[in-house]
Simulated assay, not measured.
Amino acid sequence: MIVVIGKSGQLAQELHLLDSDLICLGRNDINLLSREDVFHTLNKLSPDAVINASAYTAVDKAETEEEQAFLINAEAVKFLAEYCEVKRCHFVHVSTDYVFKGDKGSPYISSDIREPRGVYGASKAQGELYLSSIINTSACIIRTSWVYSSHGNNFVKTMLNLMTQKDELGIISDQIGTPTSAKVLAQACLAAAKNRVCGIQHWTDLGIASWYDFALAIQEIAFEKGALNKNIPVRPINTEQYPTPAVRPKYSVLDKTKNSDELNVENAHWRVHLSTVIDELIEKK
Score class of each variant (00 low, 15 high):
Leu32Glu: 09
Val99Glu: 03
Phe39Arg: 07
Asn229Val: 09
Ile171Pro: 03
Val253Asp: 03
Trp203Leu: 09
Ser145Arg: 12
Asn161Trp: 02
Glu220Arg: 14
Leu216Ser: 08
Lys101Gln: 13
Phe91Thr: 07
Ile72Asp: 07
Ile232Asp: 04
Val4Asn: 04
Gln165Glu: 15
Trp203Thr: 13
Cys89Glu: 06
Ile142Tyr: 09
Ser173Phe: 01
Arg271Leu: 11
Gly127Gln: 01
Leu281Ile: 15
Gln165Asp: 14
Lys284Phe: 03
Pro249Asp: 02
Glu14Leu: 08
Phe91Ile: 06
Ile218Thr: 12
His151Leu: 04
Glu14Trp: 12
Ile135Arg: 08
Glu224Leu: 13
Asn43Glu: 14
Gln175Ala: 03
Tyr130Phe: 13
Ser275Asp: 13
Asn161Cys: 12
Asn161Ser: 15
Thr180Leu: 00
Ile218Cys: 06
Tyr212Gln: 08
Ser111Lys: 12
Lys250Arg: 10
Ser106Tyr: 05
Arg35Trp: 08
Cys189Asp: 05
Thr239Glu: 13
Gly105Lys: 01
Gln219Met: 14
Val99His: 04
Ala74Leu: 04
Ser145Cys: 11
Glu262Tyr: 05
Ala215Arg: 05
Gly226Asp: 10
Leu169Ser: 12
Phe100Val: 04
Arg143Pro: 06
Leu45Asp: 13
His273Leu: 06
Pro245Thr: 06
Phe155Tyr: 08
Leu160Ile: 06
Arg235Ile: 06
His93Arg: 00
Gly6Phe: 05
Val184Ala: 00
Asp103Val: 00
Thr137Ala: 15
Ala69Cys: 01
Leu216Tyr: 07
Ser54Pro: 08
Leu42His: 03
Arg117Asp: 10
Cys84Leu: 06
His93Glu: 01
Lys61Ser: 13
Thr180Cys: 02
Lys225Tyr: 11
Ile278His: 09
Lys256Met: 15
Leu185Cys: 09
Val272Phe: 08
Glu224Ala: 14
Arg35Met: 08
Glu128Gly: 01
Leu45Thr: 09
Tyr148Ile: 11
Ala55Phe: 00
Met159Gln: 12
Ala81Gln: 03
Arg114Gln: 15
Ile200Met: 02
Val86Pro: 11
Ile5Ser: 00
Tyr83Arg: 04
Cys24Ser: 15
Gln68Val: 12
Asp174Pro: 02
Thr64Lys: 14
Glu220Phe: 07
Phe214Arg: 07
Asn229His: 13
Ile200Tyr: 04
Thr158Glu: 14
Ile200Gly: 04
Ile142Pro: 01
Tyr83Trp: 05
Val119Pro: 10
Asn52Glu: 03
Lys101Asp: 12
Ser150Leu: 07
Gly226Asn: 13
Arg35Glu: 15
Ile171Trp: 09
Leu228Cys: 12
Glu280Ala: 11
Glu168Leu: 02
Asp19Arg: 07
Gln68Tyr: 10
Asn52Val: 00
Ala186Asn: 10
Ser252Tyr: 01
Ser8Glu: 12
Ser54Phe: 10
Asp167Tyr: 01
Phe39Thr: 05
Ser275Leu: 08
Ile221Arg: 09
Ala193Gln: 08
Arg248Gly: 06
Ala217Asn: 11
Arg27Gln: 15
